[in-house]
Amino acid sequence: MLQPEEEIPLRIQELTSNLKIRDVMARKVFAVTKTCTMRDVQAIMKNNSISGVPVVDSRHVIGVISVHDIMNAFEQNWMQDPVADHMTTSVWTLEEEQPLSFAVSAFNKFPYRRFPVVNSKNELVGIITPRNINVALIQELSRQLTALETEGGGISPPTSSDTLTFHRTYRLTRYDFESGGKASAELREQLRARGIQPKIIRRAAVTCYELEINIIAHSYGGTLTLFIDHDRIRITANDFGPGIADIDQAMTEGYSTANDWIRSQGFGAGMGLPNAKRLADEFVIQSGVDMGTMVKAIIQLNPKEEPS
């Protein structure tokens, strides 16, 4: 069942939200310490056909040397100098646990052709280029295609084999409040049809609606994916920026960056994220400034204990 043309990029968007940078990055990184010379870096680049080398100090990235820096060094006769003298020090790094969509946003936003990837301790663990992303997407798409073919149904919705499973992605546009509520309405219908307790339906639908409105009111646009199986509902909201600088602040009731127009629509009370967190059984938020925000909320269909 092929949907309108939009469906294809939507699939790709969904893929970039579900994959983590860790799954896609190259783990073999050629990095140098700050005492290495520009000549050393040039040799590494030449021997390994790479165009950028991070400079590290006890595993922390402190700079990057690009081909451009090397050309400059040739011209200025700096090839024997330590890299610390000529490296680019304003380095953007990505974190390995971030969704791949953050990397896509970063490549769209900045002119760089690679980003060093760090772990939670800010230590260099990999490097990511647009090529890594292309390869990962192609691999993932062909894997899904093979799975569809083996299912024997050709192009059929993956829900056909199991009526209790539901999986759909919705596109949400900045400031298009009319488009908000589609996912939550469908979620409500799906849960009603399964005879789920009204209380749980309400918690799930409100969580979903808050996340829909968040993307519409606060991001440049994004997607919301619903996944329902026998035990739980997973709501994943992804957007492509601008990201949240201080997540603790954003999670505080009453804190809002909403403008007057958003407020005139009845939103922007600073309760969206706190509401969603309170209502969900599990709640994870990740954000990168200029890259995007990902929220994952899980609601159990058969909870042992009601959250307050």
């Binding site: 009319e178 509520g181 609606y209 939103f267 600073g270």
Partner: peptide, 24 residues
């Protein structure tokens, strides 16, 4: 009039009194 506040506090069965006259 704050819809998030409504979503946090309105209990089932209660009427909503508001000046927000739109589809949301």
């Amino acid at each position: 009039d704050l819809l998030s506040d409504v979503m946090a506090h309105l209990k089932e069965g209660e009427a909503l009194l508001t000046i927000q006259a739109h589809k949301n």
